[in-house]
Amino acid sequence: MKKALLILTLFCASQLSAQKMYSTKSGQVKFNASSPLETIRAVNNQGDSRWLESNGQLVFSVLIKGFKFENQLMEDHFNENYMESSKFPKAEFKGYINNLERIDLTKAGANEVSAEGTLTIHGVGQKMTVNGTLTVLSSGKIMLKSDLKIKLKDFNITGSYIGSKIAPEATISLYCIYE
């Protein structure tokens, strides 16, 4: 009886510690589709991301209209002609971090991570595995960095300039510090 209670207690305690959720509302998302003819890049500093320590469930979403370009006209074209941001206001990734159990989140240092899930941009969802680095900072906060390449046509983003002025493949860089 005592033993059973002890096990139950320990189980409950372990469950409790596993509930921890990491989150940020100021994740940085950079986007680059530059071609030799034109520099096309944008930054959004309002990435919203959360993940659970228990099962590695991770979400990352960003509002398309929050992307800032150097050139206002380019920003308008990005929103109206390519991303159709009033129809598809956000881009998001929903998935699970694969190898979280192998990472010691109490020890400062960098860890390779990968997450498997669905990336939805322009209303089109694509299954993919995203690789990145999860770094436990000495402050206890956790930093995530990741670079991924996407083909614009996979997300049904079309236009006559893609392939000439606009690179057919865009690089997306994520950088965030979770609390």
Binding site: C12, Q15, Q19, M21, W51, Q57, K94
Partner: peptide, 12 residues
Amino acid sequence: NSLSLNAQTDLF
């Protein structure tokens, strides 16, 4: 535990 379980909604 049950409280926090309730609090832990599906992030999706």
